[in-house]
Design a protein around this nucleic acid. Structure first.
Lengths: 224, 224
DNA sequence: TACTTAATTTCGGAG
DNA sequence: CTCCGAAGTTAAGTA
């Protein structure tokens, strides 16, 4: 990993065209050749970058200014960096990273809801997880006193989730052995537009709390 | 901007839980307090990070190991970094960045297509850009010999774009002054699933080439 | 390998 | 300020 702090100008040409005026920035060159240009703010996304695989070529222009040309291997995307003044330049051996361990994403939410279907409504019981249909798997197929219920689970409930569930319901309600099938849209957070569309489609919305569910799952996590 | 290279362990708790085992990594601390933990590969996304606004507190554990606790201001997200061994530590004044100038995104595609509606079909002419409906603006409203045509433009054509256009068509075909309205789905690239769904809905797909359109727009850009 | 879906998405614009 | 859609999205899982 090479770290360079420099007064630089950057131009990108590829899927779009972008330009960065002269200013002091941090440039990271990773072991795989990828390059990131960061400013002193603006969250984790770099101002400009080149994804691997790519190659870096250093040259000196007519005016004596050092210029880096980073070219993608599989497309003709290029990133040009003019280094007007280098303030810092260091190189470090990092080795391969053991990688990130995650917990608490959509899959876990589905597992927890499959264990605690009553969260989705009184008398609700699980028929199948990942119930397969011609157009894809329904997250949960449940049933209660009123009949079959298809459940779509999202971490964040937005319009396309409601559309997805609508497609499943359309299809399943053509099957005489299943129909009538109602829909439940379950998410940790449901956006207003998604809620309106769901209501319009007769789909019930359920906001689920991951921590609460996990608390049911593992009583040792309860606060009292 | 502070740059630290260190053998470290990282733990994140917030919207999810994540853990990074002990390894050598680069840590960026930006002026706004945000922190990025990068490995020597894996594109522009950090392994772990904390978005601004947040605050960094440095402490020393019982075992004498320096530990950073980065806490978000508006939520209870926290990032803990145990610095087992610091290999490099430097600080740099960057100043504010003038920002990125972009060109060639969806908006431009819409502008170009509005100028060259015949790309979308023979005899096609523009009625209005951003034609307003109760559920949002249709990118282009056109007409040809066959009547009105609603055009949805995407850089990459996927299922949700077709769904969006379907909703517009449903609504517009209820209006006696407009109907019948046909649909055209225009994108630089159309995914197979989206194409199938569009066909099922009677929506025509058009693949547009940004560079070609720009060439029509500005003859000086033509290659001959 | 190609395609689909999720993401601690981030970012910008409009109401 | 919130809400909504686009992104050079990236990354992971599956057929």
């Amino acid at each position: 990993m090479r770290l360079v702090v420099a007064k630089c100008q950057v131009d990108y040409a590829g899927r779009l065209t972008a330009h960065l005026p002269l200013a002091t920035r941090v440039i990271m060159v990773k072991a795989d050749g990828s390059v990131l240009v960061h400013a002193d703010g603006g969250s984790y996304k770099p101002l400009n970058w080149m994804s691997p695989p790519c190659t870096l070529r250093e040259s000196v222009g007519d005016d004596g200014v050092v210029e880096w040309t980073v070219a993608a291997t599989k497309s003709d995307d290029t990133l040009r960096i003019r280094l007007e003044e280098v303030i810092h330049d260091s190189d470090h051996e990092l080795g391969i990273d053991p990688g990130l361990q995650k917990d608490g994403v959509e899959k876990h939410l589905q597992e927890l809801l499959a264990e605690h279907t009553t969260t989705l409504g009184p008398g609700m019981s699980l028929v199948r997880r990942e119930y397969m249909t011609a157009i894809g798997p329904v997250d949960l197929l449940c049933k209660d006193a009123g009949g079959s219920v298809a459940v779509e689970i999202k971490r964040r409930g937005e319009i396309d989730g409601v559309e997805q569930l609508t497609r499943y319901l359309e299809l399943m309600n053509r099957d005489p052995k299943l129909r009538p099938v109602r829909g439940v849209f379950a998410a940790q957070e449901i956006k207003p537009q998604a809620r309106v569309l769901a209501q319009d489609r007769g789909i019930e919305c359920v906001v689920v709390n991951y921590d609460e569910l996990r608390g049911i799952e593992d009583p040792s996590l309860r606060l009292f």
